[in-house]
Design a protein around this nucleic acid. Structure first.
Length: 571
RNA sequence: UGCCGGGUGGUGAAAUGGUAUCACUAAGGUCUCUGGUUCCUUCAUUGGGGGUUCGAAUCCUCCCCCGGCAACCA
C-alpha cells in the first residue's frame, strides 16, 4: 500500500529511525543560524554534590552530553557547590562514577563553582560600584515580610540606599568575617514591585561561617545559586544552559546578571524533569526511604538512583536508550515505568546468556533412567546471538523443576506438568508425570516421572507436546540466593496521598522476596558481581555484590513478559 | 488572587495553515524445544466555546484544568 518505502534502505531506517527534533534542538538550530554563539555548542551538567544521582538526572546528563556530541561541541561537568553546609566530596565521587558508568565523558573539563568564588566576589563589587547591589541588615524573616506576597508588591529595605562606599566597606567586612551568620546579606537592587519574586531584590551573598569541602575556611560568605550559575556558565563559555522547569522564573535574573555584568550571555533553556509511575523522585523522599529503613540504602536495587539501578542490574545502554526514547519537552509528564523495564528487556534479550535456574525446587525422579548415568547435553547460550555458542548441562535421574510448572489439577490451557501429562525438559527429553508424592502435611514434595528416550533433539511423530520447562540436575545444582525485586510502591502515583498520609503509606509490602535456596545450573559456578543472565522462562538476573564463592546471590532485574500470568489474571 | 509554564489515545512524544504520525501499554492472532523473542491486526478528530480560512492540533478570542514561584536551598 505505502509506495514510498525505500526497500533497499529499510533496515537502515529501522536501526536509525528518523528522530524528531526536540524543542531544545530547534532553539540551538536558531542560534546556529543567527550566529549568536558562532557555530559553537557547549553545554554542561551542573549537579549539586549533596546527594546521589537518579534516573531523572540521567535524562539531563544524556540530554546535555548527547546534544554536545550531536553538534560537535563539548559538555562540561560542573559541581554547583555554593552551599558549604550541605555538600560533601563523597557525593562528588559518586556523581562522577555514575556519569562514567552511564557512558559519558567530560574529559578534563571537571569544574567547580567554588573555583569561581574570587571572580564572583569581584563581580559583586562591580555591581555595588554600579549602584546595583547593597548590603542589607534585615533578618531572614524580615526579608520575607518586605518581599510582599503573590498579590502585593514588596517594600524597600531601609538599607537600600546606602552609599556605594558604605556598601563596599560593609561587604569587605562581611568577607573579612566581621559579622555573624545571618546578620547581613548582599542584595541585588532590582525592583521590589516586580511581579516575579526572584526579581524583588534577591539575596546574592550570605554569611556562612562554614567549612567548605573544597575551599576549606577561606570564605565565610557564599554566593547564592542565582548569582553563581549564570556566571559560571558564562566563564566556561557555555552556549545553551539547560535546566529543569522550576528555574523558569529565574531566567530573568540569570539574564539580568549577565547584562549588568556585561559578560558572555548563554541562553537558559528549561525542560520538564522526568517522573516515573510507581516511583518518587526527590532527594528528600529518598532520604526518608533510607533513614526509615524502607530500603537498605541509596543503592538498594529498588531505588531509582543510578547506583540502585546499577546494582539491580540495569545496563547503561538501556538507560541511555530510554532517555532518548522518552524525549524532551516542557510538558509535566509521568512516564510509565514499563517503558524503562521494556528497554532493559530489549537490551538484555540481545546480549544476556541464557541459563536454567529453579527458584522453587520440586524434586523429580525419573524412574526409568539409570541412577548412575550422567548425560552431558548441549544448550544454546543465546538464540539471539549465534556467536554466544553452546554449553553443557548435565542430565541425571534426579532433577529439580519449578513448583509452578506442576499442577495437580491443571486449569484449562495449562500445558506444563500434571499427573499423566507430558512435558519437554528444555534441551533434553520429554517426560511424563506418573505420580506425585506428598509429605505428612499433604504438600507435594516429589514427582515420579518416566522418560521417552527417543525425544532428544526431536519431536515425537505421534503426538504434540507443547509445554517446555526448565530444570537442573539435583546432584549438580548450585545453591543460590535469589532476590526478587518488585516495584517499591503499589500505586502509580505515590505522591498523591489522602489527608494525614504520606508517600510511605503506598509502599509495596512485597517489593522484595528473598529465596534462600534456589537451584541453579553448574555453569554458574564462579560468577562475578554485575554479570547478567536470563534465567530461561523466568527473567533477567544480575549477580549481586553480596555474592561469595560458596553462594552466588542474584538480583532480579526484571521478569520476562509472562502472557500465561496475564491469562490467569484475566480469567 | 499576581507572574511564568503547560494541555494531542490509558502513557510518552510528532505533525510548525494542507490526509492527526511513531512508539509503549492493552486486546486479539501468528510463530516457537523459553507461555520469551519475532511478526500481524485493533484502539484519538487534538481541554471547552466562538472566530479567521477553501482548509486549523497549528492563527485570533473568551473560558476551564494542571504545574511552578513568596529559602539567607539548588
Amino acid at each position: 500500500m505505502v509506495e514510498n518505502v525505500n526497500l533497499g534502505k529499510g533496515e537502515d531506517q529501522a536501526s536509525t529511525p528518523e528522530k524528531h527534533i526536540n524543542f531544545v534542538e530547534e532553539i540551538i538550530n536558531g542560534h546556529l543560524k543567527s550566529g549568536r554563539f558562532g557555530q559553537i555548542v557547549h553545554t554542561r551538567f551542573p549537579p549539586e554534590p549533596n546527594g546521589y544521582l537518579h534516573i531523572g538526572h540521567a535524562k539531563s546528563i544524556a540530554l546535555n552530553f548527547s546534544l554536545a556530541e550531536k553538534y560537535g561541541g563539548l559538555c562540561n561537568l560542573r559541581f554547583d557547590d555554593t552551599n558549604p553546609s550541605k555538600e560533601e566530596s563523597e557525593y562528588v565521587d559518586s556523581i562522577k562514577a555514575d556519569i562514567k558508568w552511564l557512558g559519558f565523558d567530560w574529559e578534563d573539563r571537571e569544574y567547580y563553582a567554588s573555583d569561581y568564588f574570587e571572580q564572583l566576589y569581584a563581580w559583586a563589587v562591580k555591581l555595588i560600584k554600579a549602584g546595583l547591589a547593597y548590603v542589607c541588615e534585615l533578618s531572614a524573616e524580615e526579608g520575607r515580610e518586605y518581599r510582599g506576597t503573590l498579590t502585593e508588591p514588596g517594600k524597600h529595605s531601609p538599607y537600600r540606599n546606602r552609599s556605594i562606599k558604605e556598601n563596599l566597606d560593609l561587604f569587605a567586612g562581611m568577607r573579612a568575617g566581621a559579622f555573624p551568620d545571618g546578620s547581613k546579606t548582599l542584595k541585588a537592587k532590582i525592583d521590589m514591585a516586580h511581579p516575579n519574586f526572584t526579581m524583588r531584590d534577591p539575596v546574592i551573598y550570605r554569611i556562612l561561617h562554614d567549612h567548605h569541602h573544597r575551599t576549606g575556611d577561606k570564605w565565610c560568605i557564599y554566593p547564592m545559586y542565582d548569582f553563581t550559575h549564570g556566571q559560571s556558565d558564562s566563564l566556561e563559555g557555555i552556549t545553551q544552559s539547560i535546566c529543569t522547569l522550576e528555574f523558569e522564573n529565574h531566567r530573568p535574573l540569570y539574564d539580568w546578571f549577565c547584562e549588568k555584568l556585561e559578560i558572555h550571555h548563554p541562553q537558559q533553556i528549561e525542560f520538564a524533569r522526568l517522573n516515573l509511575t510507581y516511583m518518587v523522585m526527590s532527594k528528600r523522599k529518598f532520604l526518608t526511604l533510607v533513614n526509615e529503613g524502607h530500603v537498605s540504602g541509596w543503592d538498594d536495587p529498588r531505588m531509582p538512583t543510578i547506583s540502585g539501578l546499577r546494582r539491580r542490574g540495569y545496563t547503561p545502554e538501556s538507560i541511555r536508550k530510554f532517555c532518548e526514547y522518552i524525549g524532551v519537552s516542557k510538558n509535566n509528564s509521568v512516564v510509565d515505568v514499563t517503558i524503562l523495564e521494556n528497554h532493559v528487556r530489549e537490551h538484555l534479550n540481545a546480549v544476556a546468556p541464557r541459563v536454567m535456574a529453579v527458584l522453587k525446587p520440586l524434586k523429580v525422579v525419573i524412574e526409568n533412567y539409570p541412577a548412575d548415568k550422567i548425560e552431558n547435553l548441549e544448550a544454546v547460550n543465546n538464540p539471539e546471538d549465534e556467536t554466544a555458542g553452546n554449553r553443557i548441562v548435565p542430565f541425571t535421574r534426579e532433577l529439580y523443576i519449578d513448583h509452578d510448572d506442576f499442577m495437580e489439577v491443571p486449569v484449562k490451557k495449562y500445558f506444563r506438568l500434571a499427573p499423566g501429562t507430558e512435558v519437554r525438559l528444555r534441551y533434553a527429553y520429554i517426560i511424563k508425570c506418573e505420580s506425585a508424592i506428598r509429605d505428612e502435611a499433604g504438600n507435594i514434595v516429589e514427582l515420579r516421572c518416566s522418560i521417552d528416550l527417543d525425544t532428544l533433539g526431536k519431536q515425537p511423530l505421534d503426538r504434540r507436546v507443547k509445554g517446555v520447562i526448565h530444570w537442573v540436575s539435583a546432584d549438580h545444582a548450585i545453591d543460590a540466593q535469589v532476590r526478587l525485586y518488585d516495584r517499591l510502591f503499589s500505586v502509580e502515583h505515590p505522591d498523591k496521598v489522602e489527608e494525614g498520609e504520606d508517600f510511605t503509606s503506598h509502599l509495596n509490602p512485597d517489593s522484595l522476596e528473598i529465596i534462600e535456596h534456589a537451584k541453579v545450573e553448574p555453569s554458574l559456578l564462579g560468577v562475578k558481581a554485575s554479570e547478567r543472565f536470563q534465567f530461561e522462562r523466568v527473567g533477567y538476573f544480575s549477580v549481586d555484590k553480596d555474592t561469595t564463592p560458596e553462594k552466588p546471590v542474584f538480583n532480579r532485574i526484571v521478569s520476562l513478559r509472562d502472557s500465561w500470568a496475564r491469562i490467569t489474571r484475566n480469567s
